[in-house]
């Protein structure tokens, strides 16, 4: 009895170890197999890179499908109309590949990601308005873009964001955090012309600001914790 019980366990354990090592060895390109909790290999790493690029934090990019990677996959699936199951199957991987691909010209030649400015804008949105409602994030990005078309400000996104004293997230280094998916989306939306800030040039958190100049500007709209002014 005892022996049989033991041997059953041994078979189970050996089987488990074998299947784990085999999945580790038998990896191919990303999309060749179903990835889930416990998977590892270069294809998982590639997937993690893609997720991070789109703003879904996976922790360290180590090629191991852990809890953080699973949470990122779930969020990605939720945002992209895919059934939320935490597993990276064909649909999830192909959507990920589609969105992380390069832009092409009419004859199909890859010409880069074409998102340099959006990326910096998303960093600023992430640093300034991480906890704000989505429209408030779009509005923060819109303020930066409104400054470009105002004569009194510098004319590039980088010059505006890194102008000394312009944004507190530059001073405390929060701008360097990886942008979230929502900040990236907000930056894209503002760049495509949506402006919930109503043409604002400044925004501030009334609970944290004593600056007289900024309080003296006319209020346009309040979204979340930010007042947007001109």
């Amino acid at each position: 009895m005892i022996l049989r019980f033991r041997s059953r366990w041994i078979v189970l354990i050996v089987g488990l170890i074998l299947s784990i090592t085999l999945t580790g060895i038998a990896y191919g390109a990303l999309g060749d197999r179903l990835l889930g909790r416990g998977s590892s290999g270069p294809d998982v790493q590639e997937m993690q890179k893609g997720l991070a690029q789109l703003g879904y934090g996976v922790g360290p990019i180590d090629g191991k499908f852990g809890t953080k990677t699973e949470a990122a996959i779930r969020n990605f699936q939720k945002d992209h109309g895919i059934k939320v199951d935490g597993l990276a199957g064909t649909k999830t991987i192909s959507e990920l590949k589609r969105l992380t691909g390069q832009s092409t010209n009419a004859s199909g030649k890859a010409i880069g990601y074409k998102n340099v400015d959006i990326n910096l804008l998303a960093h600023a949105v992430n640093g300034e308005a991480r906890g704000e409602p989505y429209l408030g994030q779009v509005a923060v990005a819109a303020v930066i873009l409104n400054r470009i078309s105002d004569p009194a400000f510098p004319k590039t996104i980088a010059d505006i964001i890194y102008q000394p004293g312009a944004f507190s997230s530059v001073n405390d280094g929060q701008i360097n955090l990886s942008p979230t998916a929502s900040s990236l989306r907000a930056a894209q939306e503002a760049a495509s012309g949506v402006d919930p800030s109503k043409g604002a040039l400044f925004f501030f958190n009334p609970a944290k600001t004593t600056n007289k100049y900024i309080w003296s500007r006319p209020e346009l709209v309040k979204i979340g914790n930010h007042i947007f002014t001109k």
Binding site: P151, A152, P164, G165, L201, I214
Partner: peptide, 30 residues
Amino acid sequence: SEGALKDYSQLPADQAGLSYIGQFLTQSGD
């Protein structure tokens, strides 16, 4: 004027607001 504006916007400051120097440079360039 574009070059001047770019340099001007990098000078140390405690806070940034509407800048008339910036406006002057932008408008003369424009």
